[in-house]
Amino acid sequence: MDAVAIEVFLQTLISGLLLGGLYALIGIGMTLIMGVMKIINLAHGELMMVAMYMAYWLFVLFHIDPYISVFIVAPVMFFFGMAIQRFLINPVLRVESILPENQVILTVGIGMVLANLATLFFTSDYRSTPVKYASDAWYLSDYWRDSPIELSLSVPWTVSFTISVVITVALWFFLTKTDTGKSIRATAQDLEAAMLMGVNVERMRLVTFGLGAALVGAAGCLFIPIYYLYPALGGRFTLIAFVITILGGLGSTVGAIIGGLILGVFESMTATYVGMGWAPVGRFLIFIAALIFLPGGVASLLRSRRLGK
């Protein structure tokens, strides 16, 4: 391989990892909800779209930088998620004759309503957020003059990735070090046992849906500087989140992180080596491959290794 080929490969890998970090954040939100509620939240991408419009308007109207908006939008989305759980999903949960499938269909409905409301209020125009640093980048040659290859790091992508890592680490601490976090994991692992231990399961459902919405909301804010925005974008990200969740193993947080990174790198490689338009195809190939060859996702590999020792 000559220098150019190596350069292209490394650059593609870097973009893939940066994208994967953001994907992971989206996937973690969905997988948390999946773990506790045992349903796939098919309004996940639409929640992200709502958060992106919030960040967009905060920027346009109040000139608040999207990276600051994370700290406004994520809490708002937390309460929005709790409200959805409390007023829409819980009433359906209580009707015993309704199958869990119907809750999934309910989330599809919520997603449609959100997408159409957004179209109604904001039209279906594509919007982008003109942050000043949108096309800034750091170049390797600026720091290492004699570098044999040239690599660049986009400023907004890198900042977004870094914030998403920070959020993920904070979430990890929350889930492993606090009683509420442990209660969420316990509820996901064994609902009845959690109830017997004194976990208020209904409250955990609210907190979990809120948390899932806040995480995907944060991801929305982090996407704003690097992505355009339109009301129908949600469906696409719901699909991405779904693929990550399957790839990672349903309900596994670590799996979602690894799944997100794999998907990010895979899409980036497909775009470079096959063609831009093929990235979504790559996504489906990896989805089907995961279902056939690794039905339990990355989590099943981690589990068998841990149990095997």
């Binding site: 994991r185 316990a186 692992q189 017997l196």
Partner: peptide, 30 residues
């Protein structure tokens, strides 16, 4: 159920029903 445990009633269920992916100590915390 979560009120009952506050009153001091504890149920050790059939088949252990541990949180199998948590550590021993985390199970005790629960």
């Amino acid at each position: 159920p979560y009120k009952l445990i506050e009153l001091g009633i504890v149920h050790v269920p059939e088949g252990r029903r541990l949180f199998t992916e948590m550590t021993v100590e985390e199970n005790l915390d629960m």
